[in-house]
């Protein structure tokens, strides 16, 4: 009898001892963005463009972008993105990066005029939708309020109350919470509401993401668009 009990115990420990690996398909297309876009550049003045590059899992990575100007006689640009307005007109400014299997690129149109005018982004928007069989839907807007970001959901927002530990995130990868900014646990499951997210820029994240945090179950997401 003792032997049988011992065998059972050993079997249990052998079977239960192993924490294995679950693989998450978290690959996304890399993204390169010019982060300080301008609409126009004052003639005979210069401007340092900046960019960010998100790699194939949505993590920010330091790379050397290739800068080009469509019309070098109107705007010249160096390898580091330092642009100089030489003549009236407009030019396509392009930042790009060749990664294994593809190319990330961002293009803006810049005119040369009397003043340098930064591109003003007043807000962004999107729609969260379920990617699971748990209910989740709703339109949202994003707006910068001082140094904070405000995420506002409209009256059409609805989320399942059945999940334990539903959390909302900002992320650059819609498939994982790795490197995502956890906003907070969801407390409102229907109707309009908002979140204030301190010290976050409107260009910092690409997705609003909903996850059941304790069980790492993705519920849904919404892409943040202009």
């Amino acid at each position: 009898m003792k032997n049988i009990f011992g065998i059972l115990l050993v079997c249990m420990l052998m079977l239960g001892a192993c924490i294995g690996d679950d693989f998450v398909d978290d690959r996304v297309d890399p993204v390169l963005r010019i982060t300080n876009s301008i609409d126009s550049l004052a003639i005979d003045s210069s401007y340092q463009f900046e960019f960010s590059y998100l790699n194939n899992v949505g993590q920010e990575e330091q790379i050397a972008a290739v800068w080009t100007s469509g019309s070098e006689e109107i705007i010249s640009i160096t390898d580091t993105g330092f642009a100089t307005a030489l003549a009236a007109g407009s030019s396509e400014i392009q930042a790009s990066y060749e990664y294994e299997g593809g190319r990330a690129i961002d293009i803006i149109q810049v005119s040369v005029g009397g003043n340098t005018v930064e591109t003003e982004i007043t807000g962004k928007k999107g729609t969260v939708q379920t990617t699971s069989s748990y209910k989740l839907q709703g339109d949202f807007t994003l707006a910068e309020v001082g140094s904070d970001l405000q995420l506002n959901f409209g009256s059409d927002y609805e989320a399942s109350t059945a999940l334990p530990g539903l959390f909302v995130y900002l992320s650059n990868n819609p498939n994982t919470t790795a490197d995502a900014l956890e906003i907070q646990a969801v407390e409102v499951f229907a109707g309009a509401h908002s979140y204030t997210i301190p010290n976050v820029g409107i260009e910092d994240y690409r997705y609003v993401l909903y996850f059941c945090k304790p069980f790492n179950v993705k519920v849904g997401h919404g892409e943040i668009v202009e």
Binding site: I19, D22, F23, V24, D26, V57, T176, A178, N216
Partner: peptide, 8 residues
């Protein structure tokens, strides 16, 4: 619970 591992 298992480890969650990036497939990438």
């Amino acid at each position: 619970m298992n480890n969650l591992v990036s497939n990438t």
